[in-house]
Simulated assay, not measured.
Amino acid sequence: MSVENHKVFRAAVKAAKRKFFNEHIEEIATTNKRPWDLMDWVKECKNPPCKAIQFNDIFITVANRCIESGHWPKHFKESMSVIISKLNKPSYSTPKVFRPIVLLNTPGKLIEKMISNRFQHNMIKYDLVNANQMALH
């Protein structure tokens, strides 16, 4: 296959994919006006570390207790700031040459992610999101 033929082929494939997906999105947007129905089609991006600890672990128990009590432990809110200097700068006498990074409590971040996923799932499952909140343009 020549380079020119390959370019034509790739352009045709790209156009066919775009047409298919646009038609599918249009169909969902016009027939039932529920963009959430696209979620199964798109597939959720999964956070592997969160998924790895999600089942049969102490983090589930902690997340459940936080929800039940309505309390978020103070140590989950704590953070540590680290200042990193940018490389190859002529002078390190100005603040612009440093990059501050905030490190959050990892178990707290994982539990927040699990709670967020659970709330999002329940909002969709129990139809708590108004269709007008998510509009396809």
Rank of each mutant, 00 (worst) to 15 (best):
C50R: 08
R10I: 12
I58F: 05
I25L: 05
L103Y: 14
I28V: 14
A11R: 15
I58Y: 03
E27Q: 04
S69I: 02
C66W: 01
R18C: 07
V62R: 00
F55I: 15
D40G: 13
P100H: 08
D37M: 13
M80Q: 09
W36R: 09
I101V: 15
L87P: 11
G70W: 00
R99H: 06
P107L: 08
K19N: 07
K77E: 04
A11H: 10
I28T: 06
P35R: 04
K89D: 11
N105W: 08
A15Y: 01
H75W: 13
L38A: 09
F20Q: 07
F59Y: 07
A12G: 12
C66V: 01
C66Y: 03
L104G: 11
T61E: 15
W72L: 11
P35D: 02
T31E: 11
S81F: 11
H71I: 14
T106M: 13
L38E: 08
N88I: 05
H24R: 08
F59W: 03
S81G: 09
N88H: 12
I28F: 03
I101L: 15
N56P: 00
K14A: 15
E23W: 04
A29H: 01
E23K: 15
L87K: 15
S79F: 09
A11C: 13
L104E: 12
P49I: 09
K43P: 02
S85I: 12
F55S: 13
Q54T: 05
V97A: 14
A15C: 06
P48Q: 05
I25D: 00
E78F: 00
K33N: 10
P95W: 02
S69K: 06
D40H: 06
I84G: 05
A12H: 08
